[in-house]
Design a protein around this nucleic acid. Structure first.
Lengths: 348, 348
DNA sequence: TTGAAAGCGCTAACAG
DNA sequence: CTGTTAGCGCTTTCAA
């Protein structure tokens, strides 16, 4: 293992430009107190030598680490990757977050943590100690975990909580699940459905409640009853099968599923019961993952702007690092509805 | 921006254990020259204080950075993410690479680079200077790029080249595309097909050639001619449409597509021409991405062990860092064939 | 086997 | 506006 030293350091640049290290450092960090001509001269040396600062050294010097951690639930994420069912949550986070981070010279590091027990505290502490990130992006179901937030607050790390509305340490970003639930439900109501069932996600996810609330509101607004039309799932396929059965038995002519996997279960149950979609049953999925475009029929779905919301999270963390003002209001990046062919008027 | 200092450092551990910094450092790095009782005492302090070394400091001290860069083509990767067609290459790399890296205290950082012109040299140099990774994983079409390899060699960074067979700096890992091509083709030949068309990938990808070679070998082994049965695509949908048309016109009764996107194009052309699959035309895809399980019919496909190969790449990089012996032979993690319902005897 | 000293590349604090 | 001086937390010498 060859001992690798930085090829060109701040010293080389300083020597080349004939200035002190400090001046070079100031130019790198775009500090105001450098004469333009001086800055230009230094920049010329930087470009000439192809100098890029070592983030390890910057971090050691007491500056930023230019690292942002995106925390995701290990178990669920690995299961998604293994099953290869097309869930592209992490990809969308990278699309929005990593690309945005790169624009600012930051890197996004995906970190998987165990949700259970005290593991998460150990794991997170270790990651923080090892990496010393400037910011952490929390995703459901961690976004409002008090243990995590306390830990992060103690370390004064910038925190973005995706899928959260509550205030607390850091700032919240939401895709407005309530509105999304309303949107999906209203679409079905407008088509003429009266018995619109809803398959909720697990309670551990706060957003499950918001989506239910949106459904309730839309039902109320349309003057429809909800009796027997709410079924609880756990985002898994099996739970979707059970929930669908219950809703169908309750006379539902349309179903909103809280995620794509449960929507696939609806499809399956409809098939076994000989129900055509959308002829006999309309279906809206709550994820617009790749597979719902390839099902038969392709599903009308709530599109969650994961990339966009992650990009915003990164931007705000970086702004905070740069000393920007802190706006505590939750940031809303609304979801939308993509209408495909799984929804139609009832009894068509 | 609060000035964040490491909560617990090697100093605290040294003080707690009543030893010198150096001894703690030796324990951390599992050096042999520490008396067991001493090591135990130090370890106890480490556990008690929850100490985790700062990788920035370790790096600064001249040790490893515990960072491994996974280089991917920016344009293609971002396009895949945006289109949301289910391509899960990056996910599979993370599944294999990130998880394996984490087991050893390493982190995998995904880095996107522009393939074109001199961008790549600048970008890669900058990433190396900023991060100082211990290793770099190269993916097609970068795996054998001489500019990249020269740069990496100059910096003495460990390199894993995925999808490569050629020797050169670093070590090569292959999923044995030639064998995979043979496998897919032989499967069709065994079903009784004589006119088996092959839609190749772009020449920029070395593996395109290997797959063609596998197809040729299997055709020869089955005593079949290849006249007019090879069409060149570029991994894109449009190119797949054109290629399919050509192959069908040449009388193909079965087609092997070099990736899932082009396989979808085959499906589409078959539909427009009123050809049933597998009744009138058999189809094998070269990617087992999520969508090919949801097409109608689900596609027989070559499964590429991306996760496994990436895990091996990470393991070997880490072993090399640890001073392990270097085995220059390319590592083969063979692809397999998953048979679904898009293949059947001809004219069935 | 252990410890003390020096330095990695950079920035913060202070002078000038 | 610019330069000097101390570290940051760790590892590598080297010495004991």
């Amino acid at each position: 293992m060859a001992r690798r030293r930085q090829a060109v350091t701040i010293k080389h640049v300083a020597a080349d430009a004939g200035v002190s290290l400090q001046t070079v450092s100031r130019v790198i960090n775009k500090e105001a107190s450098v004469r333009p001509e001086m800055a230009e001269r230094v920049q010329a040396s930087i470009d000439k030598l192809g100098y890029v600062p070592s983030i390890a050294a910057q971090r050691m010097g007491g500056s930023r680490s230019y690292l942002i951690l995106a925390l995701n639930d290990r178990e669920r994420t690995i299961a998604d990757w293994r099953e290869r069912q097309g869930t592209d949550w992490v990809d969308q986070m990278m699309l929005g977050g990593m690309v945005k981070a790169a624009e600012h010279g930051y890197r996004l590091i995906v970190e998987l943590v165990d949700t259970h027990s005290d593991h998460i505290e150990r794991e997170l502490s270790a990651a923080l100690a090892a990496l010393r990130p400037d910011g952490v992006i929390l995703t459901p179901p961690h976004s409002e975990n008090p243990l995590i937030l306390k830990l992060l607050e103690a370390q004064h790390v910038s925190v973005a909580r995706i899928g959260s509305l509550r205030d607390g340490y850091g700032f919240a970003l939401t895709m407005d699940d309530e509105r999304a639930g309303r949107l999906a439900t209203a679409h079905l109501a407008e088509l003429g459905h009266a018995r619109i069932g809803f398959i909720a996600g697990p309670e551990a996810y706060e957003l499950s409640g918001w989506r239910i609330e949106g459904w309730r509101q839309a039902m109320a607004a349309a003057g429809l009853g909800t009796e027997g039309l709410l079924a609880r799932g756990d985002f898994g396929y099996e739970s979707g099968l059970a929930a669908t059965g219950a809703l169908l038995d309750a006379g539902a002519t349309a179903i909103v599923a809280s995620n794509d996997r449960m929507a696939l279960a609806v499809l399956e149950v409809a098939r076994t019961r000989g129900l055509s979609i959308p002829g006999d049953l309309s279906l809206v999925s709550f994820d617009d993952t790749p597979i719902v475009r390839f099902t038969h029929p392709p599903l009308t779905a709530v599109v969650q702007p994961i990339a966009e919301v992650t990009a915003r999270a990164v931007e705000r963390i970086i702004a905070e690092q740069a000393g920007g003002e802190f706006d505590p209001a939750p940031e809303v990046v609304p979801a939308s509805l993509t209408i495909r062919t799984s929804t139609a008027p009832p009894g068509q």
